[in-house]
């Protein structure tokens, strides 16, 4: 669906200043039906990558294709694309309804007023329909952005920090909308700093740093990366095997961690030694743990 191959984007501030590489050999592949997240610290190049996908920035080198074609502004490719920008760069002189209608009309599909009204209603802006965007709060503008994504039944959705400025209720509703759209077949590409949000909806993640993708995989695999362990607590013993990494010792018990693949050995050891096991639970690695670990490894 989307393919970026060794893309480099340079930003220059003035003629004499040295160019800054916003993307440096950026390569990524998004399959149809994915909910794909670009993850990374500030300045990693996530938004730049998204602008490249949208054709708003042309790469200095490398290739990008979206639905098999190189993207360029306003092309036919966009008839099945929805984009929610990070900053509310909307036509602020329009009212909520005018803006959603305008963006819908640009598709030239003859989208009726009712569909526009329904989309506005769905994001909870019905009573602010006639309010100019310049007078709307940031959260309301973000909802307008969501509404304009909803009216066209897109097949490919680009979301740049989609839940920024939204209240928790709207975040939940928006998440449900995205999951519903994905079930209907939409491919979603998003970038976000909210790791819990990504864990909830994404199936694939690319972790970026300094313009490069340093890890890219299925979320479950990326989160795991063979770092999952069992947390155990057992009777204190002075002859513990080496694979138990002791975390804490009390007068009567020992707390420690063992690698997943040595669980059988652990049970056998406890059985032979006659030690009572109080706890043995799988300690899952969160995306946050994985993210920091991968970033650290990457550096």
């Amino acid at each position: 669906m989307i393919k970026a191959d060794n893309v480099t984007v340079l930003f220059r501030n003035g003629f004499l200043k040295k160019a800054f590489k916003a993307l440096d050999g950026f390569s990524v592949a998004v399959e149809e039906g994915d909910v794909f997240a670009l993850l990374g610290p500030n300045g990693a190049g996530k938004s730049t990558a998204m602008y490249c996908f949208l054709g708003l920035i042309g790469p200095d080198s490398g290739r990008i294709s979206v639905a098999g074609r190189p993207p360029f502004p306003g092309s036919g490719m966009f008839s099945e694309v929805a984009y929610l920008p990070e900053e509310p760069h909307y036509h602020l002189y329009l009212t909520v309804e005018e803006a959603v209608k305008y963006y819908a009309d640009l598709f030239g599909k003859g989208i009726g007023r009712q569909k526009v009204v329904d989309a506005i209603d769905r994001v909870g802006l019905t009573e602010f329909r006639d309010l100019r965007l310049s007078k709307c709060s940031k959260g309301m503008k973000q909802k307008v952005g969501i509404a304009q994504c909803l009216v066209t039944d897109p097949k490919l959705i680009f979301l740049d920090e989609p839940t920024r400025g939204l209240d928790p209720i709207t975040v939940k509703e928006f998440r449900d909308i995205l999951i519903e759209m994905n079930k209907k077949g939409a491919t979603i590409v998003l970038n976000s700093h909210v790791l819990s949000e990504i864990e909830m909806i994404c199936n694939r993640v690319a972790i970026m740093n300094r313009g490069r993708v340093i890890a890219q995989d299925e979320l479950n695999r990326l989160r795991g990366l063979n770092r999952e362990v069992y947390q155990v607590e057992l009777d204190r013993s002075d002859a513990l095997p080496a694979f138990i990494e002791v975390i804490m010792k009390t007068q009567s018990t020992v707390k420690g961690e063992i690698p997943c693949d040595l669980l059988k050995d652990f049970i056998q050891f406890a059985d032979v030694a006659g030690l009572k096991v109080y706890e043995c639970s799988l300690k899952k690695v969160s995306l946050e743990d994985a993210f920091f670990s991968i970033l650290k490894d990457g550096e």
Partner: peptide, 18 residues
Amino acid sequence: RSRSIKMVFTKPCLPETW
């Protein structure tokens, strides 16, 4: 300058048309 132009060009509306 308001960058609202990118909301137009991320729709199937060519710069020529706009």
